[in-house]
């Protein structure tokens, strides 16, 4: 029972040894900055080097909205990190992953997107609350638990959906089968037995990849920006 306690020599990083555009651990990501990145506010935990942070759309950076954001959306939620150094990003100890797009597109829940390279452009999805990244480059997203990838056909709890790539937008699926039949009738009339909480899913079909987090607990929603109020445009929901 006695003897030295086993203490592993901890890994100490510095500006040279921090990973280059890779995870430090499942919850922290190290960006090798040489130029610009877009960050959601509040996600920088530490940095080495000469890095300036600017609000987007402010003064000289006005043109960035046109170049990378393509819409008058949520600019106040984003900052530009500009300079040279190593930048550590994290989000409330949630799992953090980087994704590489090669002339592709991926739609992600607005609250899950942490940062992206300016070579990607960010657009509002037709689906309210989601953002679509288009082009070639790297972005970083957080999820509550590891991200799990599934191929359609699959039905997903709305709160567990992180995003999807390449496949068509999902449709709503309602499951009220248990309301049929005699017992179901009694349930429907009396409310006895309650609801399963699984009456509604997002239904994905076609070719692509669906990203699911391991819990139905949402990350804090971010404003995905207003859409023009006009006929034929789905509302913000």
């Amino acid at each position: 029972m006695s003897g030295e306690s086993p203490v592993h020599e901890p890994v100490v990083f510095d500006a040279r040894t921090l990973p280059v555009n890779d995870n430090v651990n499942p919850y922290a990501f190290s960006v090798d900055l040489d130029g610009r990145w877009f960050l959601q506010k509040g996600k920088m935990i530490a940095y080495y080097g000469q890095i300036d942070f600017h609000g987007i759309g402010h003064g000289p950076l006005d043109h960035l909205i046109a170049a990378s954001f393509h819409s008058p959306l949520h600019a106040a939620d984003w900052v530009v990190a500009e300079g040279k150094g190593r930048l550590l990003l994290a989000d409330r100890a949630f799992d953090v992953n980087s994704f590489d797009l090669d002339d592709g597109n991926l739609t992600v829940r607005s609250g899950n997107l942490l940062a992206f390279e300016p070579s990607l452009s960010l657009k509002q999805s037709i689906v309210p609350g989601f953002l679509t990244l288009i082009g070639t480059g790297k972005f970083i997203a957080a999820s509550n638990g590891e991200v799990h990838f599934m191929e359609p056909p699959v039905r997903v709890d709305p709160q567990a959906l992180v995003g999807w790539a390449d496949c068509p937008s999902p449709c709503h699926h309602y499951d009220h089968a248990y309301l049929q039949g005699v017992l179901g009738g009694i349930r429907a009339m009396t409310g006895l037995g309650g609801a399963s909480g699984e009456e509604h899913q997002f239904d994905f079909v076609g070719q692509g990849t669906v990203l699911i987090q391991s819990t139905e607990m949402l990350l804090a929603e971010r404003n995905a920006g207003a859409v023009p109020d006009q006929a034929g445009v789905p509302g913000p929901g």
Partner: peptide, 9 residues
């Protein structure tokens, strides 16, 4: 537990 399904096929 109700509401604990995150996806199905």
């Amino acid at each position: 537990q109700r509401g604990a399904m995150v996806g199905y096929r």
